[in-house]
């Protein structure tokens, strides 16, 4: 049985999918490490955010919602920290950013 909440949740999940796909497109198309990092961290986090939102709307109880939010926050912290670390060591290795 699909309720309104389920449908809205499904819509959120569908909206999240393009972000994952464009994240990958960006990873493949962008010219250097730094711009690829942009694609990777931003697009994927928004995608994951929409998917957790959608699944939260469909969740059976608040426990699952709390867990989903915890996972999302964990991934946010992890990806922004590792993105900073990769960019930082790229700079320290004197890898120059691509310039138009």
């Amino acid at each position: 049985m699909m309720t309104l909440l389920d449908n809205v949740g499904m819509l959120c999940i569908f909206m999240g999918l393009p972000f994952f796909l464009t994240g990958t497109v960006g990873l493949l198309r962008f010219p250097d490490i730094y711009t690829r990092l942009h694609a990777l961290t931003k697009a994927d986090n928004v995608g994951l955010g929409l998917i957790t939102l959608g699944l939260s709307l469909q969740a059976d109880n608040l426990f699952i919602v709390a867990k989903l939010i915890l996972i999302w926050i964990l991934v946010l912290i992890a990806s922004s920290a590792s993105c900073h670390l990769v960019a930082r060591s790229a700079i320290q290795k004197n890898i120059h950013p691509w310039v138009k």
């Binding site: 994952f20 996972i71 990806s79």
Partner: peptide, 23 residues
């Protein structure tokens, strides 16, 4: 071409993997 680029694909694996598991 750099090791970091390969590592970034692995990071992609991380986020996408989490999304797949949630779904």
């Amino acid at each position: 071409p750099t090791a970091a680029d390969r590592m970034m694909a692995a990071q992609l694996f991380g986020t996408c993997g989490v999304a797949i598991l949630l779904l």
